[in-house]
Design a binder for these strands. Sequence first.
DNA 1: GCGACAG
DNA 2: ATCTTGTCGC
Length: 252
Amino acid sequence: MTAAPAEDQVRQWESEQEHLRQQLVEDDTEAWQKNPDFSGLQRVGGVDLSFIKGDDVNACAQLVVLSYPDMELLYEDSQMVTLTAPYIAGFLAFRETPYLLEALQRLKENRPELLPQVVFVDGNGLFHYREFGLACQLGVLSGLPCVGVAKNLLQVQGVHKSEEHQSQIAALQKGGDSFPLTAASGKVLGKALRSSDKSVKPVYVSVGHKISLDTAVRLTHSCCRYRVPEPIRQADCRSREYLRKHFPAADT
DNA sequence: GCGACAG
DNA sequence: ATCTTGTCGC
């Protein structure tokens, strides 16, 4: 088999997103999601990939499971992986999802009782060119509720960093305040959330799978000690720590 | 050519 | 993603 030209690959990926999107659930499906204090929620997951400096192929895939609401570490898995797909905006899922699914599968086999009830994903969900970002793809393929949290605004479907957008950010007074990210079509694709009182720069929250946007935003805020929700922050810190330990600085 | 470009 | 320390403030 010869590798398809990048152009054809992208077309194939687009059609796969379109197909998987039909299985996407944008509503609350779990009992705990409907409780004001999320009672019944005990385990939240976070996933991330970290890279060695000059290397965009070898990475550490990380999964953590934290207790809710205490955010204490219950499980962690670090695994070196070799990525095959390049990073192309809009197709991040095809680069990262396989390894995150493998991590979830290892957990399912080894400690099924620790499976998270919701997974925080570093990247967008519905807030995406074709409304099917990384958090959606991981959600549909794993069957788990997922929330997408991006640290930077993806300018998509008419949403962009305008003066208006900047003033909406300036109007976020305290942790938990948010404003909708509305597509040209009128659909609300996500929300910009001031995740804590101290952080001025918002995070961009969107539905991944099996959770409503309002629940996703409220849950994200409740998991934030710092700007980035704790499950993602822990996954990020621990995967970098793994790389530091196993791949010490390769120069002077 | 210019700007955008989740991670 | 990664390149990168100190510094200012509470």
